[in-house]
Amino acid sequence: MIQQLPFIYFGGMALVCAILVVVSRIAIYSAMALLGMFVHVAGLFILLDAPFLAGVQLLVYAGAILVLYLFVVMLLNVHGRGPILQRQTPWAIILTLLAAGEMGYLVLKSHFYPKLPAIPHPSVPTLGNTETIGMVLYTQYLFPFEVASVVLLIALVGAIVMARGRGGVSQG
């Protein structure tokens, strides 16, 4: 029980923050709650002996992506005054039921099958965490990795086309 306290704290706080993201009526508060969630998920990674993932989690999500969110929210000066759910109520119900079903299935499955160990995979400690991820990423999962980067590239090109396409004149 005492060993699980950190997990309960980080997992619980991540959940609370995630709920706050959805419930808050002020966009800035949502963004702050999201920051809290990222930090606590990074804590979970550290508990799993994956400090590299924790660092990257903070650096990429908290350090870059969320700052851009905040940037947009502040520039647009968003005021959330309407009801939380607008036209998407039926979709929200369907998707929530689906997600709940999936989670319930996973919980039941882990109840009947032997539980996954809470400790990291035995192959990890022989190499450093960073080296292991690098090796796996560039050998075993090379193709999906490259596909992901191509998808990102397409998104970048698309964003530039959309931003410049209207006038057709570049600003230099």
């Binding site: 400090p51 660092g55 908290a62 350090g63």
Partner: peptide, 10 residues
Amino acid sequence: VNVGILVILA
């Protein structure tokens, strides 16, 4: 920490 530089950047 074995990812010390990442910690500082983060």
